Amino acid sequence: MSRLDEVGERDSWRCWLCDEPVDPDMSVNDPRGPSVDALSTAKKGAKGGQERLAHRACNTKKGAVKPVVPWAEHLFVVDPAPIIGVVEQLTRKGGRVAVARCPTEADATEAGTWLVDRISRLAPDLTVTTRIDSGGGGFLLSLTAP
């Protein structure tokens, strides 16, 4: 396991789950204090995976279940896809994934900009671009990865 300060520096002292700042000077026993979460993308029982910085409370709340990374509340999206699932799919296979529907093109653009920024911190090695298609009285937001 890596040292907490190494993981914190690499992740710019931001919680990978809630995307809020983590105070490196706060006690590791405090709910908002730093902790290391071993994110395993390997099959059950396999060793490996990536260590990520998280608040103690975020890490505890997640437990041993698949984490949920929420969409920002200010975004106007309908039927948003689970962010972790989209990241895993694009990492494995690349291609294009529809991630949300939006009522206006401006809403889709704002959601796409936010999502690309969020994924850049969640999965730094994954490069994604957005695509917005109109149809059915709304706009479909998709992510594309090589």
Rank of each mutant, 00 (worst) to 15 (best):
M1I: 09
S2L: 12
V7R: 05
V7P: 09
V7S: 10
E9T: 12
R14I: 13
R14Q: 13
C15V: 09
C18P: 04
D19F: 06
V22A: 08
D23P: 08
M26H: 01
S27P: 10
G33H: 00
P34F: 00
S35E: 05
V36T: 12
L39Y: 12
K44T: 11
G48F: 05
E51Y: 04
R56K: 13
A57C: 11
N59D: 11
N59G: 08
N59S: 12
T60A: 15
T60C: 05
K61G: 07
K62P: 14
G63C: 08
A64N: 15
V68R: 11
V68C: 09
P70D: 11
W71F: 12
E73I: 01
H74W: 02
V78E: 13
V78C: 03
P80T: 00
P82F: 02
I84W: 06
G85F: 00
G85H: 00
V86L: 10
V87R: 04
R92W: 01
G95K: 06
C102S: 13
P103L: 10
P103K: 04
A106G: 08
A106Q: 15
E110P: 03
T113E: 14
W114R: 05
L115K: 02
L115P: 05
L115A: 06
L115Q: 03
V116E: 11
D117S: 07
D117C: 00
S120F: 01
L126S: 06
I132N: 03
D133L: 06
D133I: 01
S134C: 01
G136R: 06
G138D: 08
F139H: 12
S142G: 03
L143H: 00
L143P: 02
T144K: 13
T144A: 14
P146R: 10
P146F: 02
P146D: 14
P146V: 05
